[in-house]
Amino acid sequence: MDLKKIEGLRTIEELCDLLRLKRQSVLNKLSQLKKQGYISVSGGRDQKRIYKITTYKQTKSRGMFDIINKYSKIKVFPSFKHVAHGKYGIENALIDAIKLKNRRTLLAALSLFNHVRNWKRLSLLAKKYDIQVELGCLYDLARRSIKTRRMPKNIYDSLKSKKSRKTIRISQEKSDMVDKEWNCQIPFSRGDLKRLKE
């Protein structure tokens, strides 16, 4: 079967039309392709089944976007495929999101502050990539806006000690809003932060 022709998100009716086959024949073909890894299905029971068909084999990945989308109410469409093999947790995902400097990814990643378990690891990673001020600023922002876990005081203080005179831009986009505590440009509006709570 030409997968390119049916690639994308499809319902069974659409596939019947596209392939000009009966419903049962399409289901048989879909079952075959699912076994080969080209199809994943969402929905079922009360919801309509939607088939995600790709020309490449779909693998279950565990990367930054998967972790963010698992914990955040705001979902992010991956700008690239990220797969982590071996040690990779919430702390790594948060640091990677800060390094990416994408506004929406950062906004969604704020929710991860409520799931951080290893603050020491988080601060070491921030030190490694020299993004301690950005981390501290986003933590304060998350703490003011949504439910988060409390960062140990010694770690918070060590982040604060890295505050510089130069205003740091957290995201690629320019912003007029500056957090004076951290001297960082904040790329979110009040409306953005409100959406995190909803």
Binding site: G63, F80, K81, V83, A84
Partner: peptide, 10 residues
């Protein structure tokens, strides 16, 4: 243009 990133950390 790189489309995928795989991180290996043991």
């Amino acid at each position: 243009r790189s489309r995928e990133r795989h991180d290996f950390t043991r």
